[in-house]
């Protein structure tokens, strides 16, 4: 090395060497940091512009935006409550449908099926996540909505019709149909996170249960489900976060009505669906600003939900805790 330098040491070479060595490293690092900062700036710009655009509506309605029930673009009366309510109802209903199925499928894949078969099933479930929202919307509009109208609604009315949520006429499109579509769309999210949670249960815990004379079901309850409780909660909350923001499929099947109705058969609207449906046509400044305000609220809600999900998964899971402990030991 030294030898080479004394032989070939011309001024240009040494500069080139400097450029490609420590100096080059510095340039590369600063360049990358600049890009990273630019991406950060982009996120801040997004939030800021969203806030600025909502400012008119925020000044006009303040927190009353969430208490009054009128959304009337012609009278320039705006309130996000119907959409907040619609988002909440559809997302919770979707969770009620999807969470048990997802958790069961995840167990089936990690602890019951042979490895190869489990992988195939897992792949199929993940394919659901790859289908674009618009395709689900199309399917919901032309396939699911008629089924809800002609089969599911009569069934629910005849069995649970005494409940106000199952009363009133059904047009096929409405809160229930939207919730079913949402449930399908969040299945892969909850399933794949739950799979990761279950997979982190050490084999020796499962064997401990079996060695005590537990059946498979008891082993799963004892060694898999119980320590995974917070992990599953995190997975479900993440699914909730995904349901909150889902737009197109919901916008196509929910019926777009800003009236709050107790019946699940009635049409409704969510925060994202009202933006999708009205934004392009919103001409008045206050209308546009109110839609942005709705968007800002939606952003904040999903942000809180997603971050709490991550927090639950990584902070409170006993498995993650004992794994951390193992690492230290």
């Amino acid at each position: 090395m030294l030898n080479q330098q004394t032989h070939n040491a011309t001024p240009t070479k040494s500069i080139a060497k400097k450029l490609s060595g420590a100096y080059g490293d510095k340039v590369a690092k600063v360049f990358m940091q600049t890009v990273a900062l630019a991406i950060l700036a982009l996120l801040f710009l997004m939030v800021y512009l969203l806030f600025e655009m909502s400012l008119e509506a925020i000044k006009e309605f303040g927190f009353g935006f969430l208490t009054s029930t009128d959304w009337d673009p012609i009278m320039e009366e705006f309130s996000a409550l119907p959409f907040f309510y619609g988002t909440l109802v559809t997302s919770i209903l979707a969770l009620l449908i999807a969470a048990p199925i997802s958790v069961m499928v995840a167990i089936f894949i990690t602890d019951i099926l042979p490895v190869k078969l489990g992988q195939v099933l897992g792949l199929f479930v993940e394919m659901i996540a790859a289908i674009p929202s618009i395709v689900f919307g199309l399917w919901g509009l032309f396939f699911l909505a008629p089924i809800v109208r002609e089969q599911i609604t009569p069934l629910l009315k005849s069995t649970l019709g005494f409940l106000p949520i199952f009363q009133g006429p059904s047009f096929g499109i409405g809160v229930l149909t939207a919730s079913i579509i949402l449930a399908i769309m969040i299945l892969p999210t909850i399933t794949s996170i739950s799979r990761e949670v279950f997979k982190s249960v050490p084999q020796h815990q499962k064997e401990a249960a079996l060695a005590l004379g537990a059946t498979r079901e008891e082993m799963i309850r004892l060694a898999v489900l119980r320590p995974s409780f917070s992990g599953i909660t995190g997975a479900i909350v993440l699914g909730f976060g995904r349901a909150l923001g889902e737009t197109m499929a919901v916008a196509m099947v929910i019926g777009n009505s800003s009236r709050i109705s107790a019946s699940l058969f009635a049409p409704g609207a969510t925060m994202s669906s009202v933006i999708a449906n009205e934004y392009a046509e919103a001409s008045a400044g206050l209308h546009l600003s109110s839609l942005c305000y709705v968007g800002l609220l939606l952003f904040l809600v999903t942000l809180v939900v997603n971050s709490s999900a991550r927090f639950i998964v990584w902070k409170f899971s006993p498995i993650a805790r004992s794994a951390r402990k193992d690492k230290r030991a």
Partner: peptide
């Protein structure tokens, strides 16, 4: 990644 795509549209 968690931002609903509709909000990215607004932006």
């Amino acid at each position: 990644t968690g931002i609903p795509s509709i909000i990215i549209g607004i932006f």
